[in-house]
C-alpha cells in the first residue's frame, strides 16, 4: 500500500514532466536559458535518503527506462543516470544527520550532475552536438531545488513513517 502510493506519486510526476510543465513553459524552447522539470529525480533522491538507496536504485532504473523508451530511441542513458545519482547521493549522506538545508543542496547538485551526465552520455554516442556551458543547467537545478523545498514537508512527513528501512542499509 505504502509503495503503491509512492509509485503512484512517481508516475504522476513523470507524466506531469512531459505534459503540463511543457505546456506552461511555452517559451522554453526558444529562450536564451531554460528550465527543465526533473521531478522524478527529486523524488528519487528523497526516497533514497529516507527509505533506502537500493530501492531508489531499482525505481530509478524502472522510471529511467520509461524516459528512454518514450522520449528517445536510445535505451539506457536515463536508466543509468536516474539509478546511479540517487544511489550515490544517499551514500554521500549516510554519515550525516538529515536536515532541510543538506537535502535541498543534495537535490540541487543531483539535478545539476544528472544534466551533465546525460549530456556527456548523449555526446559520447554522437546524439548531442550542442556546445556545453556550465551555466546552462543552473536554472534547472535551482528550479528543481525549489520544487524540493515545496514538497519537502509533506513528503518527509510521509517518508519518515517508515524511515527505519534506512537504518538497516547503513553499513
Amino acid at each position: 500500500m505504502r509503495w503503491g502510493i509512492l509509485i503512484a506519486i512517481l508516475f504522476i510526476s513523470y507524466i506531469l514532466e512531459g505534459t503540463v510543465v511543457q505546456v506552461f513553459s511555452t517559451n522554453a524552447w526558444e529562450g536564451s536559458f531554460y528550465v527543465l522539470p526533473r521531478f522524478v529525480l527529486v523524488l528519487l533522491v528523497f526516497i533514497s535518503l529516507y527509505i533506502g538507496r537500493r530501492r531508489a536504485f531499482l525505481l530509478g532504473v524502472i522510471f529511467g527506462l520509461f524516459f528512454d523508451i518514450q522520449y528517445s530511441d536510445v535505451i539506457g542513458v536515463y536508466a543509468f543516470s536516474l539509478a546511479i545519482i540517487p544511489y550515490l547521493s544517499a551514500l554521500a549522506y549516510q554519515y550525516f544527520q538529515l536536515n532541510v538545508f543538506l537535502i535541498i543542496l543534495t537535490v540541487f547538485f543531483s539535478v545539476y550532475i544528472q544534466e551533465c551526465v546525460i549530456f556527456y552520455l548523449y555526446r559520447l554516442f554522437g546524439l548531442a552536438d550542442v556546445p556545453f556551458h556550465w551555466l546552462t543547467h543552473l536554472p534547472t537545478a535551482a528550479f528543481n531545488a525549489f520544487f524540493a523545498i515545496v514538497v519537502y514537508f509533506p513528503l518527509t512527513k510521509y517518508l519518515e513513517k517508515w524511515a527505519h528501512g534506512r537504518d538497516e542499509e547503513v553499513i
Binding site: E17, G18, Q22, L36, Y71, S72, I118, Y122, V130
Partner: peptide, 14 residues
C-alpha cells in the same frame, strides 16, 4: 500531441 520530451537533447513529440 500528447506529450513532449522534457529534456533538450531529444526533441521529441508524442
Amino acid at each position: 500531441v500528447v506529450a513532449r520530451s522534457p529534456d533538450r537533447w531529444n526533441h521529441t513529440l508524442i
